[in-house]
């Protein structure tokens, strides 16, 4: 055991316990992540501590939280890179269900209607020739639906109806690579009063995204796309039909 750290963990059970911070002192092995520390807290000190986790390598997006005030996936943050006192809180802007668990249905309420398929064309190794019977290599989309961008977004903090960076980034992926998705639907959502025009370009979303999706850039791209297509519509005597 090499790392001694003090964890201040946000604890709150809506309806029956007040929001508070509880302190746990841990001796951890050098490889420990913040998620490992939280799993040990649950195992050894607080069996009713609720948190989300699954893959342990930043692929599932469940362990998003705020660590010393910054959005991160707890499974990717090594304790040895942090100071002696570590504060762990749930994500902002989604509502707390219990302790570190936030309201993911609220996230998917905005994300799902965009209709972005999960599988995309792989852009890796363009020189590779796919085997017979496989028209092109594919991969899972980069966005892991972790909610870090929504938590970091200053607009989401003030406008509850704002579609938010994750859903808008997904909408851009539909425009970029439609597959069988309904592009018009994704564009209509992006163009709505609570869509991409609400963004202040703070770019906090792109900053905290753990998988390089860069939602802020996607939003800028959506705006440019919508402006261009509106310009085309305005210039055309046939309006939208052209």
């Amino acid at each position: 055991m090499g790392l001694k750290r003090v964890f201040r963990v946000f604890r709150y059970k809506p309806g029956w316990s007040r929001p508070r911070y509880e302190t746990y002192t841990l001796d951890l092995p050098e490889w420990a992540t913040v998620l490992e520390a939280l799993m040990r807290i649950r195992r050894d000190h607080a069996p009713d501590l609720t948190l989300r986790h699954s893959c342990l390598h930043g692929s599932c997006g469940t362990c998003g939280m705020r660590i010393n005030g910054r959005e991160a996936l707890a499974c990717l943050v090594k304790v040895q890179d942090l100071p002696e006192r570590i504060t762990v809180e749930p994500l902002y802007n989604l509502g707390v269900v219990s302790d570190l668990v936030v309201d993911m249905p609220a996230f998917y309420e905005k994300f799902e209607p965009v209709g972005r398929p999960l599988i995309r064309r792989s852009e890796y190794l363009p020189q590779a020739v796919p085997p017979e019977g496989i028209p092109h290599f594919t991969r899972l989309e980069s966005c892991i639906e972790c909610g870090l961008c929504v938590s970091a977004c200053p607009v989401a903090a003030t406008d509850e109806a704002y579609l938010g960076p994750a859903a808008l980034a997904a909408a851009w992926r539909v425009v970029e690579e439609p597959r069988d998705a309904r592009v018009w639907q994704a564009l209509a959502l992006a163009d709505s009063p609570h869509g991409c025009w609400r963004c202040h370009l703070a770019l906090e979303c792109s900053e905290v995204c753990p998988t390089g999706v860069k939602p802020g850039h996607a939003i800028a791209a959506l705006r440019a796309y919508l402006l261009t297509s509106q310009a085309v519509r305005t210039a055309s005597p046939m309006g939208e039909a052209s």
């Binding site: 609720t50 948190l51 989300r52 986790h53 699954s54 893959c55 342990l56 692929s59 599932c60 469940t62 668990v101």
Partner: peptide, 14 residues
């Protein structure tokens, strides 16, 4: 006990 798939399932190589 925890979130769904938080035991072994979520951790496999895919």
């Amino acid at each position: 006990r925890g979130e769904v798939t938080s035991g072994t399932t979520g951790r496999h190589h895919g």
